[in-house]
Simulated scan of single mutants.
Amino acid sequence: MILSVLDQSQICEGRTASQTLAETTRLAQLADELGYHRYWVSEHHASRALAHSSPEVLIAHLAAATSRIRVGSGGIMLPHYSAYKVAENFKLLEALHPGRIDLGLGRAPGGMPLSTRALQEGKFVDIDRYPEQVDDLNAYLYDKLPAGHRFAGLQASPLIPTAPEVWLLGSSLGTAQIAARKGANYAYAQFFGVPGSEDAVHYYKENFKPSERHPEPRALAAVMVICADTEEEASRLATSTDLFFLSLEQGRMLDWFPSVETAESYPYTDYDRERIRAVRQRRIIGTPAQVRARLLNMQDQFGIDEFMVVTLTHDFEARLKSYRLLAEAFGM
């Protein structure tokens, strides 16, 4: 099994964005040392609780601070941007770190409507153009714009012999359909918990059309994991995640990722507790043996060999330990 890391850089209660980014760098270095395959960072806008909004800037920093691990975006919200500019950004990253850069693409806004309007000010955006943007981006990356293209002859610089690895990110069937149709790599955000999305990976693999660069389907699943020495400790650490995502579900983005003490003292209603119980079913929380068993079961369920692990704890040392225990559980 291949294990990777997805980091959203939540700013924990009592800490700053600068401290959080230093922790992100430490975690990337640990993941590099432990043998994790990839380290992806996300794109979110206008959020007090998240420390980064520009994945490509952070990728440059993290790739320079590590030596082996692939570093990439999870993902770039392509409808906001010019495919040409994204291609040039990531070709430059690939030139700086050949063979280590991933370009994960999403079509969600990555923020609330106000930030979306600001990002797209002065331009017409049609979400239905996302598949066309993916085609344009790949053509720029490989210098293969078709003769009849509206920008035929245009090259994305720098001109290099390699290209970043492109993945289409999705939490529902829609992106799985696009990835299958285009013969692209597919990353399924299982931890989002979108109802009815469980068959997305199966659909992708069953309907995959081979492409020039990808003769076979390649899929990974992003899952939420908290691993600790005991089941009780893992469950206690997870209370911060429970409150953070419960608030998000209720339309209230917290200004920070709460501590365990804040989460345990929160006045939950009976409905809140039922929602937390339901959502926890999609998360993997427990001892190394329990986490290993759940991941192996999910490997059979999805039929894939790579999991991108999201671990959210207020205690940063507990977060580092969770990734260490997971690596040890799989003999990395």
Results as ranks from 00 to 15, higher is better:
M112E: 13
D102M: 03
A318H: 02
S73E: 03
K321N: 11
R236L: 10
S54W: 01
G74I: 05
S211G: 14
V310N: 09
G331H: 12
Y81M: 11
R26K: 12
E13C: 06
L119Q: 12
G122Q: 09
R107N: 02
A64N: 14
S73N: 04
L30V: 01
P164V: 05
I276M: 09
V134A: 02
K123M: 15
I11H: 03
D136G: 04
W256I: 03
N185E: 03
A118K: 08
A200V: 10
D32E: 11
L30D: 04
Q299M: 15
S4D: 02
E317Q: 15
E231M: 09
R181N: 14
A147H: 15
R117N: 10
A189S: 15
F90L: 07
A238S: 14
F124V: 13
A222W: 01
Y268A: 05
T24H: 01
H37W: 11
R70K: 11
L78T: 00
Q120C: 13
V310A: 13
V223A: 09
A222L: 08
D255I: 08
P158A: 11
A95E: 09
E132T: 10
L62N: 05
G75L: 00
L34N: 03
V125K: 07
P267S: 12
L248E: 01
P210R: 09
V57Y: 08
E212G: 13
G35D: 06
E231G: 13
G122E: 11
A329F: 11
Y36H: 05
Q19L: 08
A108M: 07
H202R: 15
G99K: 12
I11D: 04
F208W: 07
P258C: 08
K182R: 12
T313G: 10
E198M: 12
R38N: 04
G14R: 11
G193W: 01
L296F: 03
A60V: 10
D199P: 05
K205N: 09
E216N: 13
T269M: 04
S115E: 07
T230F: 13
L30K: 10
M77G: 03
L62K: 05
G251R: 06
L119H: 10
P215N: 09
D32T: 08
D270C: 06
Y268S: 01
L3M: 13
T311M: 08
L3N: 05
P288L: 11
K144Y: 12
T269A: 08
Y81Q: 10
L96K: 03
A31F: 03
S67Y: 10
D102E: 12
V71W: 02
G35M: 07
G111E: 06
L325H: 05
T162Y: 09
V223C: 07
N89K: 12
Y84C: 04
G251F: 06
Y140R: 04
I76G: 00
K85D: 06
A222M: 13
T241P: 00
A327P: 00
S322Q: 02
T262Y: 10
N89G: 04
H80V: 06
F151H: 15
S172I: 09
H52M: 09
A222F: 07
Q155C: 11
H52N: 12
V279W: 13
D272L: 08
G104Q: 04
M298R: 15
R38V: 06
L96Q: 06
A200D: 08
T162V: 10
V223H: 01
G193V: 03
A187I: 04
K182Q: 14
D305P: 07
L169R: 02
L137C: 00
G14S: 07
I304H: 05
G331I: 09
A222V: 15
P55F: 04
